[in-house]
Each structure stands twice: as C-alpha cells, then as structure tokens.
Amino acid sequence: MKTKKNHYQIVIVGGGLVGATLAIALDAIGIDLVVIEAFQERSNSQPSFDDRSVALSLSSLKIYQRLGLTQMINSAEPIKNIHISDQGRYGFSRLECSKLNQPQLGAVIENKILGLALMSEVRERGIEYCCPAKVVSAKKIVKNDKNVMQIELEGIKQFINCDLLILAEGSRSNLKSQLGYQTEVTDFKKSALVCNITTQIPHKNWAYERFTNNGPLALLPLSDNRMSIVWSNTSEKSKELHEMSKISFAKELEVAFGSRLGRVKKIGKRNVFPLMQLVTSKIVSDQCLLIGNTAQQLHPIAGQGLNLALRDIEALRKKIQKLCLDKESKLDSKNWLDEFENERMSDRFETIEATEALARLFSNPSTALSLSRNLLMKIMDVTPAIKEVFAMKAMGFKA
C-alpha cells in the first residue's frame, strides 16, 4: 500500500498501541504525519492487539483523557486496591486508593479493546494510516539542500522523506539494527502464562501480586468479574501449565494463589510468552527516535512497559509543540532530540532498573531473600510514608 504523499514532517513506523497513541497525540498539535504498519488492520498477527491485558497507571489514564479518549477510559476496569503477598510467608502489603486520597490506582483494559479504541480515534481524526506496508530501509539523505530521513516501502519501491523518523514497531525492529542502535538483551530464562479467569468470589476491583518460588503471579481485575492473570514460571513449568487440562490448571492456580477469591470457575485461552528485557542504550540519533518496546522491552512484573511509553509520548508531544512555536527551531535538528533524551533519561533508567531488580528479587527462591522481602512488605504495610512513595511511583507520578 502506498502513502498519499512523498514527504511528511514525521513518519511513525509501527501502528500498534504505542504508535497509534503517538499519532493521536501529534495530530492534536497539527503535525503532518503518516503511520506505517506492517500488519493488516484487525489482524490476529498484530502483536499489540493480542489476548493480553494492560494495567494503565493513573497518570496514563490522565494522558488518554487529555487526548479525548474518555469512552475508552470508562470501559477500563478500575484498580481500587492492590494486595501484595508471598506464597507460604507471612509478609504482605496493601495499597488502597481511599487511604491515598485517589479515586483509583489505575485501570485494566484488554489489548484488543484498547487497540480498537485507538484505531477508531485514528480513523475519526483522518490520520493517514498506511497498512499493510513494510519499511525495508531507512537512511539520511540530502534533498533540495535539506537533510531528510528517507524510507523505502517493500515491494512497491516507494520512497518517503520526513524530517523525523520515529520507530514504534516493537523490540525486534530490523530498522533499529539497520540504523546502528545497540540493544542489550537480558534473558530471564522464564516464560509468562497469560489468560483470563473467573473466580467464585468477586474481585471488587482488587489487583493481586503474589510471589512464588518460580516467579510472580499477577491477577488483574477485568469487567464481568473476570481477572487477567500473568503467571511467571520456568519455561518448562509454563509449558506444562499451558498443556494441562483446565481442571488441573485450576488446581495449580488455587495452590499458588490461595483461597482469597475462592475456586477458579472459568478459564479462558492460555498463551505463553518468553520473558526477556531488551534495552537500547540511546533512543535518539540524527532525525530518528525510538519509543515503546523499540526502545525498551521490560519484564511485566511491575506493568510499566506501556506506562513508560505513554510518559515518553506526553513529554515528546510537549517538546514538539514548543518546538513548533519557535520559528528558529526545526524538527530535523539533533539538538532538541538530545535534550529530549536527557530529560527522559532519569525516568527511563529508574523504571528499567527497578523493574529488573524486582524481577530478580521476587523470582529468587533463596530462603534468606524470601525472608528479607517479606520483612520489607510488612514494613511497607505499616509505614504510610514508604507506602505513599511506592504508590506514587506505581501510579506513574514523581514521588
């Protein structure tokens, strides 16, 4: 599929959750852009729109609200409280929105529902969405005495120029490698089993994080008393859980989680995903920027991947809006890109390092570590100041 023009201010490669949100944010400030997406719209192979769910922090909900996606926010299931515990240990901690003077701590929405809402907004705004189309190469050239990024679409031999190229096509981006970005890969040697369940006792908008010897087990509230589970285990155990009968799986889940929500009544389709962290040290180069999983793919333990991307999008929108008001500044300048990277560095690396530390701390079966983390949870539960700092970070705000 061809684009309508051969030059844009910004080309976004990747039209999943991050790319579509970014397009909406930049369209709102009048940027001339096109989104290029490799997968057919509503295709089952579109990785952003799979069976998983995403926990949106309170700050992320506010970002979507500012973009006018109120109906989508209202369809997400609120997280009012969070219960954190360790299997077989006494330590636990609770975060409750009423005690933090917040209406909610966040909300959970299924990826497919979020994806459809974003695509509906993209169409309603008239944003050009070139799909299916695959970018096979990107390079910097001089065109009419001006530096531009030139990309080539597969098959049709169309070349498109832009002042700024933004890659939002996921962690395995070929363009990222082609443009010389270096990625550090951490293989956690584990997998996450994901599915939706219904329990005997209503969740009442509680989210649960349960730490087991093999890895964390998260239960997130969904509509109709369903819960989305993300269960980290060794790859062998995840495969076993995926292949066993629903009755056997329910029993295993009840043993790992406990009886707080009663029996598991229904189990949806189970999927298994490998757990890896992929981090690109730099996210900008001349006239090119990485965002979302293209910049960093995180362990799901803290649910911060999309939330970090949304904070980046909000900061980028403000930066570009300010840039457009300054007649002497240009999108093709590297100075403002370097400034943006430096401004986002603290939040980015704090989130990456905290997520990796949590993944290692709460996936380690060491008795000494287990006792230490239980003590930490108990201290946090009875210390309002510590709890507030933790909650503010979880909600996506500065503590």
Score class of each variant (00 low, 15 high):
Met1Asp: 09
Met1Tyr: 05
His7Thr: 05
His7Arg: 06
His7Met: 13
Tyr8Gln: 07
Gln9Asp: 15
Leu17Cys: 10
Ala20Trp: 13
Thr21Val: 02
Ala23Asp: 00
Asp27Gly: 03
Ile29Cys: 02
Gly30Cys: 12
Ile36Glu: 02
Ala38Phe: 07
Phe39Ile: 04
Gln40Ile: 08
Gln46Ile: 12
Ser48Cys: 07
Asp51Pro: 00
Arg52Gln: 01
Val54Pro: 13
Val54Met: 10
Lys62Leu: 08
Leu67Trp: 12
Leu67His: 08
Thr70Ile: 12
Thr70Tyr: 05
Gln71Trp: 01
Ala76Ile: 05
Tyr90Asn: 08
Ser93Phe: 05
Ser93Arg: 03
Leu95Pro: 00
Glu96Tyr: 09
Glu96Gln: 14
Cys97Asp: 04
Ser98Arg: 06
Pro103Thr: 06
Leu105Cys: 05
Gly106Trp: 12
Lys112His: 09
Leu114Val: 07
Gly115Glu: 14
Gly115Ile: 06
Ala117Phe: 00
Ser120His: 11
Ser120Glu: 06
Glu128Thr: 02
Glu128Val: 05
Tyr129Ile: 04
Cys130Leu: 07
Cys131Asp: 03
Pro132Leu: 01
Val135His: 01
Ser137Leu: 03
Ser137Gln: 10
Lys139Asn: 11
Lys140Phe: 01
Lys140Arg: 12
Lys140Thr: 11
Met149Ser: 01
Ile151Cys: 08
Leu165Tyr: 04
Ile166Phe: 04
Ile166Met: 04
Leu167Pro: 00
Ser173Asn: 08
Ser173Glu: 05
Leu175Cys: 03
Thr183Pro: 05
Glu184Val: 14
Glu184Ser: 11
Val185Pro: 04
Asp187Ala: 08
Lys189Asn: 10
Lys190Trp: 00
Asn205Trp: 09
Trp206Asp: 03
Ala207Lys: 12
Tyr208Arg: 03
Asn214Asp: 06
Pro216Ala: 04
Pro216Val: 03
Ser223Ala: 14
Asp224Gly: 08
Arg226Thr: 12
Met227Trp: 01
Asn233Met: 10
Ser238His: 02
His242Ile: 06
Met244Phe: 02
Ser245Pro: 02
Ser248Gln: 12
Phe249Ser: 06
Lys251Tyr: 13
Lys251Val: 06
Leu253Val: 13
Gly258His: 13
Val264Trp: 09
Leu278Lys: 13
Val279Asn: 15
Thr280Ser: 15
Gln287Ser: 13
Cys288Ala: 04
Gln297Leu: 15
Ala302Arg: 14
Ala302Cys: 10
Asp312Gly: 11
Asp312Thr: 05
Ala315Arg: 09
Lys319Gly: 05
Lys327Phe: 00
Asp332Gly: 08
Asp332Val: 04
Trp336Gly: 09
Leu337Pro: 03
Leu337Ser: 06
Glu339Trp: 01
Glu339Gly: 00
Glu343Asp: 06
Arg344Ser: 04
Ser346Asp: 14
Asp347Tyr: 00
Asp347Trp: 00
Arg348Asn: 09
Phe349Thr: 15
Thr351Leu: 01
Glu356Val: 10
Pro365Phe: 03
Ser370Gly: 07
Leu371Asp: 06
Arg373Val: 00
Leu376Ser: 15
Met377Glu: 01
Ile379Cys: 05
Asp381Pro: 11
Ala385Glu: 15
Lys393Ile: 03
Ala394Asp: 13
Met395Tyr: 09
Phe397Arg: 09
